[in-house]
Each structure stands twice: as C-alpha cells, then as structure tokens.
Design a protein around this nucleic acid. Sequence first.
RNA 1: UGGGGUGUAGAUCAGUUUGGAAGAUCGCUACACUUGGGAUGUAGAGGCCGCAGGUUCAAAUCCUGUCGCCCCAACCA
Length: 477
Amino acid sequence: MKEKDFVKEITNIDEDIAQWYTDIVLKAELADYTDTKGCIAIKPYGYEIWENIQKYADSKFKETGVKNTYFPVLIPESLLQKEKDHVEGFAPEVAWVTEAGEEKLEERLCIRPTSETIITTMYAKWLNSWRDLPFLYNQWCNVLRWEKETRPFLRSREFLWQEGHTIHETAEEAKERTLQMLNIYIDVAENLLAIPVIYGKKTEKEKFAGADETYTIEAMTYDGRALQAGTSHYFGQNFTKPFEVKFQNREGKEEYAYQTSWGISTRLIGAVIMAHGDSRGLKLPPKVAPIQVVLVPIAMHKEGVKEKAEEIYQKLNKKFRMKLDLRDQYSPGYKFNDWEMRGVPLRIEMGPRDIENGTCILVRRDTLEKITVSIDNLEEEINNLLEAIHKNMFEICKKRIAENTRVAHNFEEFTKIGEKGGFIKAMWCGNKECEEKIKELTAIKSRCIPFEQEHISDVCVCCGKKAEKMVIWGKQY
RNA sequence: UGGGGUGUAGAUCAGUUUGGAAGAUCGCUACACUUGGGAUGUAGAGGCCGCAGGUUCAAAUCCUGUCGCCCCAACCA
C-alpha cells in the first residue's frame, strides 16, 4: 500500500504544511477552535503535554531557588504607561476592560499581555534592604495579546506560559540569572522535548520591549523555518527606576535593583508538532508523550488474548504512561495508523501467535521498525527504546539544522540562499538599517547573535561596511 | 488596513448559472461477521442551506444588508 493511502485523512506535510499542522492539531485532539475568535480550547491530550513540560521546567526553576506566586490578570493603565518602550511595544495588542456591569470604570484595566509592570510595582512595596535580595518569583498563568493572525499553539490570542521575574543587588548577578534561565530553556528543549536549538542574543531591533538584552532559543521546523521557543531578558534598571524599586545597599546608599524576566509558553507544543511531525502525523518525544506505550491486542476475541493483554498492561502501567486499546469496532490496522497519527512513541502488538511463543512485537514510531521481544524482558526493552527514540528524534532535528544552515558572504548570496529556507549565517555591521533592509527585500529576520561566533568575512552582508558580529538569520513562524 | 475567495449534516463538498420534495462520500449509532498495516454486510441517527430583511404562488438558488471563516499583501514582544 502506498504511503499516501495510509495518511489519506491528513494533508501531505510536504505540499501544505500549514494545513497539515491544522489537521494534526484537530485530528490528534490536541486542541480545537472555539467561538472566541483567536482562542483555542486545549483538549486533554494536548494539555497533558503541557503538564509534563510544566512539571519538568518547574522543578528546574525551583532547583535554582525560584518560588511560585500569583499576580492579577488585570493591570491598571497607569502602571502600563510607566515604562515608555514597554507600553509602545505592547499597546497595539493589548485588550482593555472599560466597564463593569452598567458602570464605566474610572481607569481602564488591561488584560495582562505580560506582567512586568504589576509585579515590579509590588516589588517596590516589598523591597527595603540589600538583605531582602534577590526576589526570585515565577508565575504559571495565562496572558492575552490581540494577535491579528492566529494559529493554534504557535500564536493564539490567549496562551498559557510561565513568566519568571527576578530582581537582584547587582547587574552582574541579574545578568548571570538571565543566562542561567536561558540554559534551563535549552535543557527543556533538548533534553525534554528532543528539539535542538540555536541560542544567543537578540539584536536591538528584535529584543523585548523595555529590555536591555534579550536572549532566545530558536528551533527549526520541519520546513526549515525558525520558531522562537523561549526568551530570557535582562532589564538593567529600566523598570526599577520608573517603578522606584529601591533598596539600601551595603554602603547604606539608596540604589535601584537590577531585573530579569524569562518565559516559555504553550507555543512549545507547537514547536514539538512542527519540529518532529512527519507524513504520518504527530511524533511525540517520549518524555512528554501523554501515552508512551500503546498496547494493541490482535484477535481479541480469541481465548486468552484479552486477559494476557490486561495482565501486561497492569504490570507496565506502573512504570510507563500506558494505553490499552480494546476498541472492538476498529481493525488492528486502523489502530496502528491512529496511534501513529497521535504520535505515541512505542506500540506493542500482541496476538495469539505471540502469546504462544511468550513474545510480543514492539514498533517504534520514529523508525517504524518492528522488534520481536520476550515478554519477560518487556520493561527493560521499553526503557531502552524510549531512550533511543528520544536520541534519534533529537538527531533527526540536529541533522536538519546542519543541512539547512548555510553561509552567505554577500547580499546576492544571501538572497539566493534565503529562497531555500533554513538558517543563514552572515556577518552584520550592527546597524538597524541593514536589518530592516534585509527584512524588506527578503522577508528574513535576524534570529540571534550566537555566543559561539564564527568569522565568515570582514564586512556586513548588507552594506559592505566593517562587520561586528556573525548573526543567524531565518524566516520565522 | 488593502486585494481575492468561501459559508449547505460532525468533516470534505455537490446542488445556485436557468427558483419547483435537502444530496453524495467519509465519520457516527446498533447488530452480525472479522482482526498480524486503514475489513464487510444490514439497519439507523443526524440540516432554521451563516444571520436579517426583500422579490415571488414558490427561495439553498434572485436582490439588499450584515456577520463569520480562509488565502495573498502589510503589521506582529
């Protein structure tokens, strides 16, 4: 049977990845569109992925001393206005509450697009001495940004995220925290989600509204586009000055605190879909898959099959996130395709023949390889295979980045290479004008200035003047 | 904010030109039969044809208005 016959229900990923993405989100039951325009309902299968991301990230945060908190969803306009760049950056996509019942509010309230302003205000109230520092607070919450063009998980008007906000005694300590959190995000992407990322500093043009420095992790999707997957910001005293977050320092003098913020969101679920998915559908990294192993009994009605399947399920369920598929209205073949489409990393097939031999068949979602194993060794085999699947998924993405990262020495080369998609390494003079020109002519934006610099040439790819940094460029989602 | 397209069953769509009984396929429900890569049969459920108004003996179909969604361009921490 031809490949396309297996996947007749989902759009071909190589022909129309946007439609493929929508098909997967809906058919794998990760989420659904709601009557609230631009906002999705996250279904159990999608939410459980988020819970697994939360669990991992939250424990990593706490290992570094971060505590969880909660701040209001509504922020008075006067607070939002206090930091000029910040309000200018966010104003176009902020939603306002202006009335309550029949009553018009004296001051309108914004629904948080991010919480720097309200949290910094509270920090001002709580901070007195250098002995109080640092404040290492985080919150898991929802935010609202009135996006014009939305896509489930990748860009919706309301989304779930965590936002960490810290203040410190010194600039050095705050900068260190910014990079420390970036490293946790790299860890989440690579070790939890099996998504290799490029990382580094954002240019002035691309940095967060109100930040001194923004650091980013960027994934590459199946079709070679960039996807910002997490950011960590160093604010210096940009917020603490207007918000008067002051403390008495070790010399007894008044000083403004140094600040950071950092966030990852449900967009990571979109990144998982876009980085790992293939023609058969979703491919979930074993560590976050809501179902790690699905057990499909063959010829269930034959004596002993169902019982044996139940027995094995009960045993493995203690160790892995398991699903036993006893649906009798579907044929095994249907179930195989169904679970592959839903991205379950590992499948066990078990029929009368196997039971007789004391074996079963394990099938990997990533390679579709079938492996016959003894029932006695199942647990160990599954452990090893889940680990191997994670590694292989990581390597596939790593290879894609390697094959789709190209070097451009001049503008002509840049334009030509840009048409192929992927990342481009090119030198840059440091001027915003060149970034804008490149964007205008090629629709390609700077992704980051990587920490590990390479010397490609002496001159800017755009203007030909003396180059300052090597920048990674790419089209984004 | 411009340009184009489209709203009919849970999904994909035909029917609209030329007004005359609301359709197909998939999915769904029940039963039977089957089960190692998307089986099969029989029976069934499911619709304010986006919404509002108008023309007409008669409107999914024609007219006016309105709302939603999709694509392209612009915008997008």
